[in-house]
Design a protein around this nucleic acid. Sequence first.
DNA 1: GTCTATACCACGATAGAC
DNA 2: GTCTATCGTGGTATAGAC
Lengths: 221, 221
Amino acid sequence: MRGAKETRERILDTAEQLFSENGFSATSVRAITARAGVNVAALNYHFGSKSALIDAVFERRLRPLNQMRLRMLEQSEQETAPGTPNVERLLECFLGPPLRMVRSMDPEGDRFMRLMGRAHSEPEDFFRTRVARHFGEVFRRFDAAFGRTLPELPDKERTLRFHFVIGAMAHVLAHNPVDDFPDDRPGVADPVVVEEVLWRLIRFAAAGLRASVAPQTGERL
Amino acid sequence: MRGAKETRERILDTAEQLFSENGFSATSVRAITARAGVNVAALNYHFGSKSALIDAVFERRLRPLNQMRLRMLEQSEQETAPGTPNVERLLECFLGPPLRMVRSMDPEGDRFMRLMGRAHSEPEDFFRTRVARHFGEVFRRFDAAFGRTLPELPDKERTLRFHFVIGAMAHVLAHNPVDDFPDDRPGVADPVVVEEVLWRLIRFAAAGLRASVAPQTGERL
DNA sequence: GTCTATACCACGATAGAC
DNA sequence: GTCTATCGTGGTATAGAC
């Protein structure tokens, strides 16, 4: 009746929507296939399992997003060569694509980014094995770039601070306080609000990354 | 055969352990009751549902933790009266109790804090309705305290930055990069490492909170 | 009031017909 | 490629022992 491509894509869309609304485990494959108008077994045929379907949902969105991050990173490094981009510029390359995907072009981007934030705290081996597979290279590339921009910062300290930035980003993506931010509740799709929050996050993170590595001893109180 | 108190407590302990190891949905009530040595219906008798059991697990740990936070906040405000505590001091009151509960006194604390980090990204209404019920007052109290310490910062900006701090904290709690931090892999229960990471997070967050509210216009690139 | 035994229905996954 | 039938397991509800 329909082409295979179409069915696969529709299952993907429906799954992404239901996952973002109710979470992964609360969403049954029967609910997905029912709304997509296909048989339960069709899902298993195309994806093998519910777990693999979740993989596919992430894969579809994450690849272009991370490609965008790396492309922006390369461009910013070329523009500033032979020097290095400043911290704010690096942060925009890293935080801009995911933040702007929330409530920008398509409503699907919004849904998916809520999923992303959520995935950062999934059961032990979820984030590590699935998301980290795509995220690993991006993490290392940006971690190295930060190292070039902040050469005085010890490696361990810088990497830990990068983790702090990722945590702040994930928190914003998961339950976005973006909505509650302005006084005059704009439309949820207002790109101005996203841009404001993005730059406030960049400024916050830049200050944290640039903080001096303190003497530490006897600092309590 | 056993007292009700004992059974309830044992279910709670077992559930906390299994939840932290495998996540909420991956842990079946049958697995919990089997390991606890009680019947499935005993769980439903004491807690009503799996969802309510999750509530109870959080309730038991979160109450004393937030009491500790508020007690430390009050003490720091008394000690600095009529002035206000500095940002670092406030952050220690807020971040210290949860961070130190990881790998400090009892092994249960470790398990539970992984759960806490995980809960920050649960399906839409999970964190908001369950955890936020206990967390709401603490959030408002500390948000107000930060407002007194950083009076020049606009309210919206400060609250958003507080969210960034919470995100960084949650990320550290969930998958703690604490373990990977030092070169010479100490015992996982080493309180020195926790204290180091705590202070690095405090320093990072303090710098971010103190960052100037920028002119913003034309800041890109 | 505290708990066990057990039944109920929805879930994820699979085998096999078409 | 798609569907039907079916299996094992999940959360929950009920009956009744003590």
